[in-house]
Structure formats: structure tokens, C-alpha cells
Write a protein that binds this DNA or RNA. Structure first.
Length: 255
DNA sequence: ATGGCATTGCAACAATGA
């Protein structure tokens, strides 16, 4: 079973690439972030014709997350349902193919110290609370998405350039370590202990050409699911050429 | 030091991203 996470940075602009990617990789479950569209604008029918079901949590202009699956999708939940007044569509969780899978778009945080930074930290606190009360250690559960966190300097091509930014700040790295301490396994790290593979490169200043990237998209899994992981890769080809998202898909294969 | 580039919605370039 292949579980993939990909920040597409506009599903309408990426329509042809999305369908070609699905054709090429045939993921069993594909988590998407930054749809940047409302549900009616998502290519649900085109994916259905390729055999995929879709669960959506869209939003106009910004954010938006989805899960598509080769199996039936059940038990769709949107937001943390924690009573917070949060209008941003950043979290959806489903059951499909015998696993529970969440697609999360963790806030970027803009500048350290800004209101958006505080929102990022608060959102991470709410995410951890949701996990604590909704996921048991013996569940087969995957938390997939754009975390906007490079867990440590192994995940940054040029660490000095990114030190103390919103992606690398100790406060968000501490949240990531807390997720690991709670039993969520960084499935990609297991296969790449020396660092990387990178998943995001800035559009500007030739970021991809210089490979000046970071590993900020992740698939974290509970122990029963993590034990089944046999491979983890990043599709760098998807970042190449005209019309690429600034993120590449992360692909984890489970037995 | 600061801009690079991409996307959306609106109709002006401002907001946002990472």
C-alpha cells in the first residue's frame, strides 16, 4: 500500500500534473494540501473515473486539504472540533483501506513573533490535543502533510540560511519531537537516517536548481502501521519543469 | 541588505506563502 502526501499549491493550476501523477504512481491513498479552491472546483469526477474516492475540505483562495483513495472512504472528519474559532481549512481525517489517514496543512508562521507565528504554535498544540484524544497507540494511523517544520538540520540543505526561521525554530522542532515522543514514527527518516530527502524548494533564486531545499512534508505513523513501512521516497521529478508545485510528493510504501 | 517567484481575487497589485 502506497500512502502519498503532496502540497500541490493550487489544485486547479496543477490539474493535469495531479492526474498524471496519479496515473504514474497509482497511490492507494493520496493526501493533498493547499488546494486553494472550494469543493466544487476540485476534479472529483476525473479522479473518480480513475477509480478514486475523494474527501474534501476546501476553502476559497487559501489552504484546503483532501484525501483521495482507491478504496471507499468512511468517517470523514474536518477540523479538530475543539470549539476554536478557526476559519482555515487545514485538517481532514478519514478511514479507508483499513487505516485512518489525516491530511494536515500546518501553518507556515510567516515571521517568528508575528500573529501568524502564534497561530502556528497554537495550531500545533491543538493538533497534539486532537491526537491525544482521538488516536490510540495500537491504531493504524498516519498523519500526513505539509508540516512546515524541518525536524533538524539534517533536513536542511543550507542550515545557516534557515536558522531560527519559522521552519527551523526550536519551538516548532520541539512540537515535532513531542509527536515522536507520543509514538508517531517519522517513516521517511527511518529510510534516510543521514538526512533528507528534501521536499520543498523556493520558487525564487533558483532554489530547486541549487537544491536549496528542506524536508518539511512528512508521513508520521503509529507503531502498528510504521512497522509495515518498507520504503520511502520523494518524487523529485514532479518538482521539475514548467508548472510544478514548489513541493514534491512524499511516497511511503507499506506491506 | 533585500529580492527572487507563484497563486488568487479583484480590478489595485495586495495578501500569502516558506
Amino acid at each position: 500500500m502506497k500512502i502519498v502526501t503532496w502540497n500541490v499549491n493550487s489544485v486547479r493550476v496543477r490539474h493535469d500534473r495531479l492526474l498524471a501523477f496519479v496515473q504514474r504512481f497509482e497511490p492507494d491513498v493520496l493526501c493533498l494540501q493547499e488546494l486553494k479552491c472550494v469543493d466544487d472546483q476540485f476534479p472529483r469526477d476525473a479522479l473518480r473515473s480513475k477509480g478514486y474516492s475523494t474527501a474534501l475540505f476546501g476553502q476559497k483562495t487559501y489552504n484546503g486539504v483532501a484525501v483521495i483513495s482507491r478504496g471507499e472512504i468512511q468517517s470523514i472528519r474536518r477540523t479538530f472540533e475543539d470549539g476554536a474559532d478557526d476559519p482555515q481549512s487545514r485538517f481532514i481525517v478519514v478511514e479507508t483501506l483499513g487505516v485512518r489517514v489525516a491530511s494536515a496543512y500546518i501553518p507556515n508562521g510567516s515571521e517568528v513573533g508575528s500573529d501568524k507565528w502564534r497561530y502556528k504554535l497554537d495550531w500545533l498544540t491543538r493538533l497534539r490535543a486532537w491526537l491525544a484524544s482521538n488516536v490510540r497507540p495500537d491504531d493504524s494511523f498516519a498523519l500526513c502533510g505539509d508540516y512546515n517544520i524541518a525536524p533538524d538540520d539534517r533536513d536542511v540543505k543550507n542550515p545557516s540560511e534557515w536558522a531560527d526561521t519559522t521552519l527551523c525554530h526550536e519551538d516548532v522542532r520541539a512540537h515535532f519531537r513531542a509527536l515522536e515522543a507520543a509514538g508517531f514514527v517519522d517513516t521517511v527518516r527511518r529510510f534516510h537516517p543521514d538526512g533528507g530527502p528534501l521536499t520543498w524548494w523556493d520558487y525564487r533564486a533558483g532554489g530547486f536548481a541549487k537544491d536549496n531545499g528542506l524536508r518539511i512534508d512528512h508521513v508520521l505513523a503509529t507503531a502498528p502501521l510504521a512497522r509495515r513501512a518498507v520504503a520511502a521516497t520523494v518524487d523529485r521529478d514532479e518538482r521539475k519543469g514548467e508548472g510544478a508545485s514548489d513541493h514534491a510528493p512524499v511516497i511511503v510504501t507499506f506491506e
